[in-house]
Nucleic acid binder design. Structure first.
Length: 413
DNA sequence: TCTGGGGTCCTAGGACCC
DNA sequence: TCTGGGGTCCTAGGACCC
C-alpha cells in the first residue's frame, strides 16, 4: 500500500494560452503570451471584462475580472482579443486525453484544471510530472503548472506557486516553509470577505490561521471556518473522483446590451432563457422542482425569488410561465441589466414520467421533444418562436455545451 | 460605450407541526 | 397570565470557485 500521490495540472493563463497557441498554428506571427494582451468580452454588449491575461499584461497590474476599460488605462497598447470557447473546449479535451495515458484516475475539475491520482504509478513523481508537462507543451503548444502532494488541496496550492511551466511539490513536511508564510488570502476558499474578517483579528498568513484552535475558528466562522482551518493545516481527505458528481442545478443568465425597462421585453428575455435552460435539463433527462429567478438592476443591485413546484417539470412553457410569475411579483419597475434563470432540486425524468405521467402536459412534452430534435439536427436557430422575429432579442440565451463533463466544484474540491 | 456566466454550499429567519 | 422546545421545510441572500 503506497501513500497517495496526487497531481494537480493547471493550464497557465488558460484562455490566453489557448488563443495564442491556436493563432500561432494558424499563421499569426506574434505570440500573445509574449506581449501585454488579454482575452476579453464584448464591450458593446456590456460584457467587457478581462477573462484571461498574459504575463506581460500582469506586469501592468491588470487583473482578471476587471473591466477592459480599466485595463486599457493601465496599458494603452494592450492587445485585446475576443474569446472562442469552442477552441478552448477542444484544447481542454486534448489535454485530458493526454492525461489519461498517465493514469486511469483523472478528475476534470474545470475547463483548465485536472487532478490526477498517481498513487499506483511506478515512476518517481518528479519524472512523471515533467513528462506530462513536456508532453502537453510539445503536442498541444501550451504550458501547464503541475502541483504534487499527498492530497488534492495541497497539490492545488502547489500548482499555484511560481508560473509558468513549472512543477512544484507541497508535501506535508513542506507546509511550514512553503505554505504557512503565504498571505491568508491565497488559501483556497479564503475570498475577499473572509480575508477582511481574518485581518480584523490579526490573522495575516496561512500559518496564523493554521495556529488557531479548532474550537475558536468554528465558533467564529462556523463550517466554512472549520474548512479553511483544515486547509491551512493541509488537511483534505477528498478523493480524486473519476466520475463527475450528479448535476444539482442548471441555469442560464444574460447581461443585456441595454437596460430593460418594460415588461414585454423582460418577458421575452425570460422566454429565451426558459428555452435554453429547459432544453438543457431535458438533455440530461431531469425534471426540476425549483425555479429561481435573479435580476440585477442598473445600479448593480440584485435580488431573487424562487418557488418550489408541486410537480417537477422540464417543460419550456411551464418554466416560462413560472419565471414570468416570479418576475411580475418581484420587479420594482426599475431598469434591469441582467436576468438569471435557474432550475434546481432535480429528479430523474424517467422516474417522474413513470410515476406521474399526466394527460395535461403530455402534449407539451411531445412538442418540446420535437423541437429539441429539430434543433439537434438543424441547429439551435432552426426553430424559434415568432415573437422573437425582428425583436433584436436572441430566441435562445445562454451557453454550456458539454453537459456531462465537469460539473463544478464545491468546497470539497 | 465600465463591471460575464456557469456552478456549489452555507446560514438565518419564518412558517408550521408535534 | 404568560409564553417550552425540537424538528423540518421553504425562501432569500451571501460566500466562494473557475
Amino acid at each position: 500500500m503506497s501513500s497517495p500521490l496526487i497531481f494537480h495540472i493547471d493550464v497557465n493563463s488558460a484562455y490566453l494560452s489557448w488563443e495564442a497557441a491556436y493563432r500561432l498554428q494558424h499563421g499569426e506571427e506574434i505570440d500573445l503570451r509574449d506581449v501585454p494582451s488579454i482575452v476579453g468580452g464584448n464591450r458593446e454588449k456590456r460584457h467587457g471584462i478581462v477573462l484571461a491575461k498574459s504575463i506581460p499584461a500582469k506586469d501592468y497590474n491588470i487583473l482578471t475580472g476587471e473591466t477592459i476599460h480599466s485595463a486599457l488605462q493601465k496599458c494603452p497598447h494592450l492587445r485585446v482579443v475576443p474569446p472562442n470557447y469552442e477552441r478552448y473546449i477542444d484544447a481542454s479535451d486534448a489535454m485530458i486525453h493526454i492525461l489519461r495515458e498517465f493514469s486511469p484516475n483523472i478528475q476534470r475539475y474545470s475547463i483548465d484544471e485536472a487532478f490526477l491520482d498517481y498513487s499506483y504509478g511506478d515512476k518517481h513523481w518528479i519524472d512523471i510530472s515533467y513528462e506530462i508537462k513536456e508532453r502537453i507543451k510539445a503536442d498541444l503548444g501550451f504550458t501547464v503548472n503541475i502541483g504534487v502532494s499527498s492530497n488534492k488541496l495541497l497539490a492545488k496550492m502547489a500548482s499555484d506557486f511560481k508560473k509558468p511551466d513549472m512543477v512544484h511539490s507541497l508535501f506535508p513536511y513542506e507546509l511550514q516553509d512553503k505554505m504557512w508564510p503565504l498571505p491568508v488570502s491565497e488559501l483556497f476558499m479564503v475570498g475577499p470577505k473572509t480575508t477582511v474578517k481574518l485581518h480584523s483579528r490579526g490573522i495575516f498568513t496561512i500559518g496564523d490561521l493554521a495556529a488557531l484552535s479548532k474550537d475558536y475558528i468554528y465558533s467564529w466562522l462556523k463550517k466554512p471556518g472549520l474548512l479553511i482551518w483544515e486547509y491551512a493545516n493541509g488537511i483534505d481527505s477528498s478523493n480524486v473522483r473519476n466520475n463527475p458528481l450528479p448535476i444539482k442545478s442548471v441555469g442560464n443568465s444574460t447581461t443585456t446590451s441595454f437596460d430593460v425597462d418594460n415588461q414585454r421585453e423582460a418577458h421575452m428575455i425570460l422566454l429565451a432563457l426558459s428555452e435554453k435552460v429547459s432544453m438543457r435539463i431535458r438533455a440530461i433527462n431531469q425534471c426540476a422542482y425549483v425555479v429561481s429567478l435573479n435580476i440585477k438592476n442598473y445600479n448593480f443591485f440584485s435580488y431573487s425569488r424562487q418557488v418550489k413546484l408541486n410537480n417537477p417539470t422540464d417543460s419550456t412553457n411551464f418554466v416560462y410561465r413560472t419565471a414570468k410569475r416570479l418576475f411580475d411579483e418581484m420587479w420594482q419597475e426599475e431598469p434591469l441589466r441582467r436576468f438569471s434563470l435557474s432550475l434546481s432540486e432535480l429528479i430523474s425524468n424517467d422516474y417522474y414520467q413513470l410515476n406521474f405521467f399526466e394527460e395535461d402536459d403530455s402534449k407539451e412534452k411531445l412538442l418540446d421533444n420535437a423541437i429539441d430534435n429539430i434543433r439537434k439536427s438543424f441547429g439551435h436557430k432552426s426553430v424559434f418562436r415568432s415573437c422573437f422575429l425582428y425583436s433584436g432579442i436572441d430566441p435562445l440565451i445562454g451557453g454550456v455545451i458539454m453537459e456531462e463533463e465537469y460539473p463544478m466544484m464545491s468546497s470539497q474540491i
